[in-house]
């Protein structure tokens, strides 16, 4: 019986390891290509590189201006995350505990934002941003990203607040606590964990966003990392698998490291945003 169990476990791990390898295979392939020469890639994309050419990563980093682009991405993502977390928390609290008449209409309007595809509003958004003088500015990008991310944030925080027992709030109210006090003393201390989770997800969204930076940022010195990668391969008349692969590595590895560090938050967020 025990032996059978051990064998089962072995098979199980075998299958899982095989699936895991299959999952990371595409990334491994790119990682190898980043160290190869273009003729090597054409000869056999799967073979190991003849030499580990680390300088190619360095060249892609410099040629692709990824240093400044990383700063730009941070400069966009941090305010975006702050705006989304704060506005979502307040709005979700208001919708759940705020005793707001007509709250369900506000909720419906926000639900609309959850289902509207970004491409559907992009033309008008572009013109509006232009009218407000927010094109070609990192602030403009942050505001647009925050607005687009907001509906999800509100829904996530709302589903969390719905799980807080109403009695808790009522008790505080009976004790004479006003709305702000209830929010500050009762709800916010409980909301730290989901807020952190929301922040993580929003950061990822902002970091990976492509369409908004593409249309909003015009000055090359303002480009984000994702946009930088797009333009690295976007020189229509050049083909350089080596540099493109190095660029992929440069942009993918940091977000993967962040993910593994914050894995708990990510996965908690995914499952929390879920079942309500």
């Amino acid at each position: 019986m025990r032996r059978r169990k051990t064998r089962h476990t072995l098979i199980l791990h075998g299958v899982l390891i095989a699936s895991a390898l299959l999952t990371v295979f595409p990334l491994g392939l790119i990682a190898l290509m980043a160290f190869k020469t273009n003729p090597e890639i054409f000869a056999n994309p799967l073979a190991l590189p003849g030499a580990w050419r680390w300088q190619q990563i360095g060249k892609a980093w410099t040629d692709g201006h990824f240093g400044p682009y990383y700063l730009n991405s941070l400069q966009v993502a941090v305010p975006t995350v702050l705006m989304v977390v704060i506005a979502s928390t307040l709005a979700a609290y208001g919708l759940v505990f705020g005793r707001l008449p007509g709250a369900r209409y506000a909720l419906a309007a926000i639900l609309l934002g959850l289902i509207v595809p970004l491409q559907a509003i992009i033309v008008s958004l572009f013109h509006d941003l232009g009218d407000m003088g927010l094109l070609n500015s990192l602030w403009g990008l942050s505001l647009a990203q925050a607005a687009v991310g907001l509906p999800f944030g509100i829904f996530m925080m709302r589903s969390f607040f719905l799980g807080i027992p109403k009695d808790l709030i009522e008790a505080a109210r009976l004790d004479g606590a006003g709305d702000v006090t209830v929010l500050r003393r009762v709800v916010l201390p409980l909301a730290t964990a989901p807020a952190l989770t929301l922040a993580t997800l929003q950061f990822m969204y902002s970091w990976n966003d492509f369409l908004l930076p593409l249309i909003i940022l015009h000055d090359p010195s303002l480009r984000t990392v994702t946009l930088g990668l797009f333009y690295l391969q976007g020189g229509t008349y050049t083909l350089n698998y080596t540099m493109i692969s190095a660029g992929v590595l440069i942009t993918a590895v940091p977000i993967m490291v962040v993910f593994f560090l914050l894995q708990r938050q990510f996965i908690a967020g995914v499952t929390a945003g879920a079942v309500k």
Binding site: M83, A87, G94, L95, L100, I110
Partner: peptide, 27 residues
């Protein structure tokens, strides 16, 4: 009520109305 609306939904509206709702209506 008005103040509650302002505090709780104000910041969200400030983002959501000009950058999502208005473009949607314009579309």
């Amino acid at each position: 009520t008005a103040i509650r609306y302002l505090i709780f939904l104000g910041p969200a509206a400030l983002l959501y109305v000009p950058f999502v709702l208005k473009p949607l209506i314009e579309t």
